[in-house]
């Protein structure tokens, strides 16, 4: 149709990170948070001999941190 222009993606230049980069960033935050604090928890486990409980807590905390980071860095509407 002649008068039917496809809408330009608005702005188009300065502040648009593309989807692929953001996706990897999000996944990276989640995995890093989990692995890093899980590792700290594992060290605590080795120290206190608590049978995986501290690792579990560390993983959950790290995951919470990862989610907070994703929300703060990517999930704020611009």
């Amino acid at each position: 149709m002649a008068g039917d222009q496809t809408p330009q993606p608005s702005g188009g230049s300065d502040d648009v990170p593309s989807g692929a980069g953001q996706g990897w960033t999000a996944l990276g935050y989640l995995i890093t948070g989990m692995v890093f604090w899980g590792f700290i928890g594992w060290l605590v486990d080795q120290w206190l001999d608590s049978g995986g409980i501290a690792t579990g807590i560390g993983v959950v905390l790290g995951m919470a941190g990862g989610i907070i980071l994703v929300v703060r860095r990517l999930g704020t509407p611009t």
Binding site: G19, Q22, G23, A26, L27, Y29, L30, M63, G66, I67, V70, V71, L74, G75, T76, P77, T78
Partner: peptide, 13 residues
């Protein structure tokens, strides 16, 4: 898109 990432993060967790 921001809400997509929030939802994605919570689910992927």
């Amino acid at each position: 898109l921001p809400y997509v990432w929030i939802g994605f993060a919570v689910i992927e967790a």
